[in-house]
Amino acid sequence: MQRRRKGNLQTLAGLLEIPADIVLDLPRITMLGNKQLLVENHKGIIEYTGSLVRIKLSQGELYVAGAELTIGNFQAEQLLVEGTVMEIKYEV
């Protein structure tokens, strides 16, 4: 039932030319080289150290591993991770 609803929402988003990330509550992840990672539409930070940042998403978690990681900007809808990003893992 839930899959059909998501399919209907995707179809509606396409017809109305609305980005799917808005309609389906999906994160938008933008990476600038290996120095910055911008995560939009997140649900908060689960864990934060200099080598690991775990970010809660609407469906799962995003693991960002690296060196000298810092939170450059933290807002309700977007989060900027700065440092040397070595690995990104999305777990549902």
Rank of each mutant, 00 (worst) to 15 (best):
E68R: 08
E77N: 13
L26W: 09
G66H: 00
N73F: 09
L80M: 13
L9C: 07
G72S: 13
R4L: 12
K56S: 09
A76H: 07
L37N: 05
M1S: 15
F74D: 03
G66A: 03
T30H: 03
E68A: 14
E82Q: 15
V81A: 02
L12T: 06
R3I: 10
V23I: 14
L69D: 04
K89G: 08
E47H: 00
I18A: 12
L26A: 11
Q36P: 06
M31F: 05
E47K: 10
L15Y: 13
Q36T: 09
L57R: 02
E47G: 00
K43A: 07
Q36L: 12
Q59T: 12
G50W: 00
G44K: 09
L52V: 01
M31P: 04
L15G: 06
V85D: 05
V53C: 10
Q78H: 15
I45A: 04
E87Q: 14
G72M: 09
P19K: 15
V23C: 04
L38H: 11
A20S: 14
Q10W: 04
V64L: 01
D25L: 05
N34F: 00
L80C: 03
Q59V: 09
G60Q: 02
E40D: 11
L57V: 04
E47P: 04
M1E: 11
K43W: 07
I45M: 06
V85N: 04
E82H: 02
G60E: 02
G66T: 00
I45V: 13
S51T: 10
R4V: 11
K35L: 11
L79P: 15
Q59D: 08
Q10S: 15
P19T: 13
E61M: 01
E61N: 00
D25T: 04
V92M: 11
L32A: 10
A20E: 15
L32G: 06
E77M: 07
G83V: 09
I18E: 10
N34R: 09
S58P: 01
M31D: 03
G33V: 10
E61S: 01
T49K: 02
N41R: 15
E40I: 03
L80A: 04
R3L: 13
L16W: 10
V53N: 05
P19F: 09
T84G: 04
V85I: 15
I45C: 08
K6R: 14
K6N: 14
A76R: 11
E77C: 01
E77T: 14
L38M: 12
Q10D: 08
R3D: 13
E82N: 15
N41F: 11
R28Y: 06
G83Y: 06
G33D: 11
E82S: 14
M86I: 02
T70M: 05
L9N: 10
M31H: 04
G72L: 11
Q2T: 12
A13S: 14
Y63R: 13
I88N: 03
E47I: 00
Q75V: 06
I88A: 09
A67P: 00
I88T: 15
I71H: 08
D25V: 07
E68G: 05
E47V: 01
Y48F: 08
V53G: 07
L69K: 02
